[in-house]
Amino acid sequence: MTYDETTLAQLTEDAAAIIARYPVKRSALLPMLHLVQSVDGFVSPDGIQFCAEQLDLTAAEVSAVATFYTQYKRRPNGEYQVGVCTNTLCAVMGGDRIWDELSEHVGVGHDETTEDGKITLERLECNAACDYAPVMMVNWEFFDNQTPESAKQVVDDLLAGKDVAPSRGPAKVACFKDVSRVLAGFEDGRADEDQGAGAATLAGLEVAKSQGWTEASK
């Protein structure tokens, strides 16, 4: 492993905190792989070795798990993971077109990263936001009701080094490594940031209110 002393000490401390959450050590593997991505920006050979040592597994066992899951990247990922949902519903509502225009605009294809290391594009499967179709995710934050123009604007802003805000979520999108640290189960103090629940989330509630239907009225 080529981690310097400070990095290794921090990783070891974090790994211990993760392992302590579970009755059986091996359960810590998925969050630890997110942790590795928070340091290296992908599941690096060093990271695999580190997980293996911490959990008494072989590197092959760790690799076999890492390659099963799409969120674990085998190559250095862009600072921003930009995903367009092209599962059926989003695709039909315009996701296919958004993907085409965005991919052409950025000049990279699926699972490819721009030369400056800023952006990795990805075609996503359903991200559980179908009522906001077409959907785009940037570092796993929701960008709802997209058009080709809105999607390109987000990417242009990212390339220009500007902050971008999701439709639902925190005040700004954090970088891939910071988000990976949250996914390893470490709070970043941003849970209270909010962009509103979203019109579709509240759609039924609004109807019920306007009709005077409350569960208590029964």
């Binding site: 091996r26 674990y72 189960g185």
Partner: peptide, 25 residues
């Protein structure tokens, strides 16, 4: 304990989910 998965639809199937939670494929 709140545990984050890593992208795999099959992990919604309850026994696959348990294997995943145990740190396996």
């Amino acid at each position: 304990t709140v545990h984050a998965g890593a992208g795999a639809y099959i992990c919604g199937e309850e026994t696959a989910l348990l294997d995943s939670l145990e740190g396996r494929r």
